[in-house]
Design a protein around this nucleic acid. Structure first.
Length: 620
RNA sequence: GGGUCCGUAGCUCAGUUGGAUAGAGCACCUGGCUUCGAACCAGGUGGUCGGGGGUUCGAGUCCCUCCGGGCCCGCCA
């Protein structure tokens, strides 16, 4: 397996960490890495030992305040290679560390950690940086070398989106924003399954409902789409075309294989109905209904995603792959490379060559290509369009697809490491402590629209990405709906609104905020709460980068809760007032608040949640 | 049966790619609004990190095994 392919390279991408507009010139962590590297080179020269090109030590944020801001395990990891005791090596590294105006204190602790405490000015620089860059703070310069296509949701247009799709939508949209912020070029894509049997069943279902509306009811198949939306499309069909598609019910039903509930086979029955529809309506008539259904449902999906603050750069048609010959070309390529064979009248892709557990049918015995054939063509198409990496956000039930898709990449001569599948676990809805069931064909599933209108886009988006995507999500409807302190969305938004209200108050008092005066007096920001807040602000870019590398938007949500908590703690618990009489101090504190507000807004935007200036409580 | 994801406080979950004393929120207990928004804050109670073995300076994190749960295993899409 090529598991590490999902992981970003171990060494940080310096191009992304490097921030040209930073007053620190380098993001702190990168700076510290360079200092330690320098010291290590000196020490190893003295010991006459060759160091590896990229020694595997880590520099990380510390967990506890007493350990400073950053710590490195370099001495622990490299002591054997350098033939020294860990604490001796730590001391040697400290002795050889080049001086830095950003490091205030160094300490050796525990078994041999080296702790770094940053100078206050380094934190204060962060503050200026946030105000300087505004909405751009936290965003890394664009890396021109990578161009990602990120596909998410891609639900069949055979019905409205349900709450399961909602998580994929929230996750994919947030992740693409985060990746973009961390400097990668990202194209958001929706793969439209506008081809194949499921859509045929939908078109047939619409036609049967239409027949009912025109007073010619035909028994509805077990395997048909039963939702009310099908009737709505049928209505639209009737309005646009009157009774043009009316047929004698007896002719429709004549000689069909028995349906499941009639003791037969539901698949055979529905296939019979599709063929009957084609035959009675003529190809033009059937296609017209098919297209009408597709357009209506796809429009509804587009509209819903837009309302959910989820956008796309490209809607890619599966049909176009078939009609342009891309599917055939992909199959030919696999054939030419010797990865196809014939068996039992079908054409198979030898996926087992590349680690899949079984070979896969690409062209069926009846000559039709499979869904997988389209997937292969689509994969090839993505790389032909120049993307360097294809990311698929899929539901956890698709995990069997990983090996298949990667095998296809290998078979096509592509690097499977550039094909990445991120699985999102299921979400369960809970209402009053009970699970809300979501049967699909039965038509009683909860749509994303239901959820959105009930709890609102902000709460839904936040709740969906609040947990790790690897974790099953228990979505508590009551909590998401509640306008109370228990609701984490309001907690974060409130912090933003609270700051806004301080500025309103300032205006009410007839005063204005003088940023330059605040910057000049910034050294007065020295209480523990203020330092904590600045420390958090400094960690925002690191959080984005990490959330991007780990494909983990929940880290951003967690970060925002932390920042909001620090703000509330400062506001309520620090025994300080912002709007003090002292002009310098007041402006310095206002600078800090403004920076916190900016970062809250930037972070919320990444996960598609609004940052309100005012919280209006609504009566339930 | 094979594959895969998960199991951390009463509940819902974090845990910085193996680091130092495992953290939040809810629930429960105590306290704080004549103040820039109390949708808030301060403090307290609560843990054999599913069990067992292994790897090493160090394991909630990596490996093995067992237990429990979700999902997948089609010439469907």
């Amino acid at each position: 397996m090529d598991g590490p392919a999902l992981r970003a390279p171990r060494q940080p991408r310096t191009a992304i960490l490097r921030d040209p507009r930073s007053k620190c010139r380098l993001v702190v962590k990168e700076h510290l890495v360079e200092l330690v590297m320098q010291a290590l080179l000196d020490v190893s020269r003295k010991q006459h030992v060759e160091l590896p090109q990229t020694p595997e030590f880590a520099i990380d944020r510390t967990r506890q305040r007493e350990h400073g801001d950053f710590a490195t395990n370099a001495a622990l990891v490299l002591c054997k290679q350098l033939g020294m005791k860990p604490r001796d090596l730590a001391q040697a590294i400290v002795d050889h560390l080049p001086p830095s105006r950003h490091v205030e204190k160094l300490a050796i602790a525990g078994p041999g950690f080296i702790n770094f405490t940053l100078t206050p000015s380094c934190l204060l620089d962060t503050l200026d940086q946030v105000l300087e860059r505004g909405a751009g703070y936290g965003h890394a310069p664009v890396d021109e070398n990578e161009h990602i296509t990120l596909e998410y949701v891609s639900a069949n247009p055979t019905g409205p989106l349900h709450v399961g799709h909602g998580r994929g939508a929230a996750f994919g949209a947030s992740l693409s924003n985060i990746l973009e912020a961390s400097g990668l070029k990202v194209q958001r894509e929706y793969y439209v399954n506008d081809y194949g049997r499921q859509m045929d069943i939908l078109a047939t279902s619409v036609w049967l409902r239409y027949l009912e509306l025109t007073g010619n009811p035909v028994r509805f198949p077990d395997n048909g789409y039963k939702g009310d939306y099908v009737v709505e499309v049928a209505h639209a069909l009737q309005q646009a075309h009157g009774d043009r598609f009316r047929q004698d019910p007896l002719a429709v039903c004549a000689d069909l294989p028995a349906d499941e509930s009639q003791g037969g086979d539901k698949e055979a029955h529905v296939d019979g109905l599709i063929n009957r529809a084609r035959q009675l309506l003529g190809p033009g008539g059937f296609d017209l209904i098919y297209k009408l259904a597709l357009e209506r449902l796809l429009d509804a999906i587009r509209e819903e995603l837009l309302a959910f603050n989820v956008r796309y750069d490209n809607w890619f048609s599966e049909r176009s792959l078939n009609e342009s010959g891309a599917v055939n070309r992909a199959i030919e390529r696999l054939t030419r490379l010797g990865h196809m064979y014939e068996e039992k009248g079908a054409m198979w892709f030898r996926a087992t060559t590349f680690g899949d557990e079984k070979d896969r049918v690409v062209i069926r015995e009846n000559g039709q290509t499979t869904y997988f054939a389209s997937d292969i063509a689509y994969l090839l198409n993505k790389f032909e369009r120049g993307f360097t990496r294809a990311v698929y956000v899929l539901g956890a039930d698709h995990h069997g697809y990983i090996a298949r898709l990667k095998a296809a990449a290998s078979g096509l001569g592509l690097n499977p490491a550039n094909v990445e599948i991120v699985l999102v676990q299921f979400a369960k809805l809970y209402k009053d402590g009970k699970e809300v069931s979501m049967g699909k064909r039965e038509g009683n599933f909860v749509t994303l629209k239901d959820l959105r209108t009930e709890v609102g886009t902000d709460a839904a988006r936040f709740f969906y990405v609040m947990r790790s995507h690897e974790q099953h999500l228990d979505f508590d409807l009551e909590l998401a709906k509640s306008q109370s302190k228990d609701n984490p969305v309001y907690y974060v938004q409130y912090a933003h609104a609270r700051i806004a209200s301080v500025f309103h108050k300032l205006a009410e008092q007839g005063q204005t905020h003088d940023r330059a005066a605040g910057e000049a007096a910034r050294a007065q920001l020295d209480n523990a709460h203020e330092l904590d807040l600045m420390n958090l602000l400094q960690r925002f870019p690191e959080t984005i980068e990490k959330a991007g590398e780990l494909r983990a938007p929940h880290l951003v949500a967690n970060y925002l809760r932390e920042l909001a908590a620090a703000l509330h703690g400062y506001y309520d618990g620090a025994q300080v007032k912002i709007l003090v009489d002292d002009d310098d101090l007041r402006n310095a504190r206002l600078n800090l608040l403004l920076a916190v507000k900016q970062v809250l807004a930037n972070g919320l935007k990444l996960i598609g949640v609004s940052a309100p200036e005012k919280m209006e409580r609504q009566e339930a």
